[in-house]
């Protein structure tokens, strides 16, 4: 069962509960106020810190609200019109998409390779492998960026040191417009691959051994077992991981902000859309305009999620 696939199906499927959860209307659970009391605490927080800012943000996007002054006035679609003509919006959106394209394929492929290796390797080194592959994911972003900024140092960093031993001249990774986003992408792959790895590992452990044994008895070789059993059985996991990964990559901010010291990099080559929202809202103090851009970002996330869900559900129908 994939989390997100279900997530999207649930609202539609809600009127017809699955067999695992019989309608609670009968038996002991009569309609009562008890349930309402139980959902109340979360509902209050949900309303205060999700629904309210969502509505307030939408309202603010039609005003010239600013952190610099008290009162604000209604400006209609002015922010939205300005946004669609603002090259910085499109440039930062492009950076975000480029980053997503850079990071998603390796983050899925390397995670799968790591999980397969761990699954096949002997028991003795399993612990060490799980630790090595997953540990970076547990590190706070600031620690990750401190270490990598230090490794990317042009003069005495480890990466250029390694390149020098094979005769490649040094690269100024974080100060060159052409490499800064790539450098951030490499760091991100190192940092977050562990999460996808864990999802793949859990899925692999869920494949019963007798499936492989039956295939081996039928004379299927190792490669055949991999392509005909493992990969097809991992399809749902892969769909989930690709979706989660793309959404996570589109949310790029932390490491890009820290590795460029908040500057967005040379020529803003590493300023993602959230970075522009942050700048507009907290440096430029324009809450109204920043809210409009936030909604554009929100729309991109929704569009990508919906497109992907449709794509994957169609594939599963065909399979």
């Amino acid at each position: 069962m994939t989390l997100h696939a279900n997530t999207a199906e649930t609202p539609a499927a809600a009127p017809a509960p699955r067999s695992s959860s019989p309608p609670p209307a009968r038996g002991t659970a009569r309609r009562s106020a008890a349930g309402l009391w139980f959902v109340l605490p979360f509902t209050v927080l949900f309303a205060a810190f999700l629904v309210w800012p969502l509505i307030a943000g939408l309202w603010a996007s039609f005003t010239d609200r600013s952190l610099a002054k008290e009162e604000s006035s209604f400006v209609g679609l002015a922010n939205w019109i300005e946004m669609f003509g603002d090259p910085a919006v499109w440039q930062s959106l492009w950076v975000t998409l480029l980053f997503t394209l850079f990071t998603t394929p390796p983050l899925v492929a390397i995670a799968l390779a790591m999980a397969l290796l761990t699954h096949r390797a002997t028991a003795r080194i399993g612990w060490f492998l799980r630790f090595s592959y997953f540990a970076p994911f547990l590190m706070p972003v600031a620690v990750v960026t401190l270490i990598w900024e230090w490794m990317y140092q042009p003069g005495f960093g480890m990466i250029n040191g390694l390149l020098a031993t094979v005769g490649i001249p040094g690269v100024s990774w974080l100060t060159d417009e052409n490499t800064v986003l790539l450098a951030i992408a490499i760091t991100t792959v190192w940092w977050t691959v562990g999460f996808n790895y864990l999802l793949y590992l859990a899925a692999l452990q869920g494949i019963p051994r007798y499936v492989y044994e039956a295939a081996a008895l039928d004379g299927a070789g190792a490669w055949r077992r991999f392509t005909s059993i493992t990969l097809p059985l991992l399809r749902r996991t892969t769909a989930l991981i690709v979706l989660l990964q793309m959404v996570a990559s589109l949310k790029l901010f932390d490491q890009a902000y820290l590795m460029t010291n908040g500057s967005g990099g040379p020529n803003y080559a590493a300023r993602p859309i959230i970075g522009y929202v942050f700048e507009t809202g907290f440096t430029g103090l324009r809450i109204g305009y920043a809210s409009a851009i936030s909604y554009l970002f929100f729309a991109v996330i929704i569009i990508v999620s919906v497109l992907q869900l449709r794509l994957f559900s169609r594939k599963e129908d065909a399979a």
């Binding site: 509902t43 800012p53 929202v277 970002f297 929100f298």
Partner: peptide
């Protein structure tokens, strides 16, 4: 019950990053 649950599930799709500006205001 069903409506509230559907609302919460829909809330999963809202990226917290999109809320920082109004949330700070709040």
């Amino acid at each position: 019950r069903k409506w509230l649950f559907a609302l919460f599930i829909a809330g999963i799709l809202v990226p917290p990053q999109a809320l920082i500006v109004p949330l700070f205001d709040e």
